[in-house]
Design a protein around this nucleic acid. Structure first.
Lengths: 136, 136
DNA sequence: CAACATTGTTTGTTATAAAGAACGATAAGT
DNA sequence: ACTTATCGTTCTTTATAACAAACAATGTTG
């Protein structure tokens, strides 16, 4: 919930509600309400004002709740967007994707992956797929 | 400004104000106000309701104005966008991406990353990955 | 050219976001 | 014990977000 995030960041900075409200330019009573989720529908301006002195931003304060992941884009069509969205929802990080993409582009990865697959099967059973063949 | 973004996305979808307001569950009068920037401080709930049927999100609707510094491990959407776009330009197909997604989920590629990354050069070709799924 | 639907707008009202206190609790100082 | 300060909370008030309905303007069909 949004209140917890604000409170967490606030305490991490060592601010009191009064202090943060002062820095942000909102009333401390209202800030108190928001932190306790008694007001879960603040305006954009208030959110922005609160986020600033926390060195944060609205998106983070919103947390996962309101975050559909993919931007509207003319190049990435609907199918792409849903594919990526699903992947992100399943836990793919940008770092993972970048690294893996680069790995695929290289030509040395085939053997090492197969080796890794075998060895990882031996010790840890967490993986349930294995690379059989790469065709390029 | 926020109004232009909404209007642009709405028209791209071929929705009228009435239609979008209906889909979003907000009053058309209010939506009209927002689009014309006569109301520049809507609440988070209204923003989320509007963003949903546009297949968009609050961050995008906010535009560059409030925009984000990176916060720890949070997902940066327009970063994702450019990453994917680049990958597509480099020849990645949707099928490739799906395969990559499965790879990421398996987690096993990470061990082999260091080995492969050292000798990662050469060859620009579209890759086709064949993956055999094994349950264990 | 009617009658009607659909567009986006403007008008009034209501609901509620946000402020501005005043409040009890805790702590430090005199 | 009596201040004085700061903490977070709860009252009361007012500003405005958001609605519903009526509106003019344009479009469509018989």
């Amino acid at each position: 919930m949004i209140g917890e995030r604000i409170k967490s960041l606030r305490e991490k900075k060592g601010y009191s509600i009064t202090k943060l409200a002062d820095l942000a330019g909102v009333s401390k009573s209202y800030l108190s309400y928001i932190e306790r989720n008694m007001q879960n529908n603040p305006s954009l301006k208030v959110m922005a004002k609160i986020a600033a002195p926390l060195d944060s931003n609205i998106e983070y304060l919103l947390g996962e709740e309101h975050l559909p992941k993919i931007y509207e884009d003319e190049i990435l069509d609907d199918e792409w967007r849903s594919i990526i969205k699903k992947a992100v929802d399943e836990g793919m990080s940008k770092g993972d994707f970048q690294a893996l993409k680069d790995l695929v582009r290289s030509n040395m990865w085939k053997e090492s992956l197969q080796d890794a697959a075998v060895s990882s099967n031996e010790k840890k059973k967490t993986s349930n797929i294995i690379i059989l063949h790469i065709d390029n």
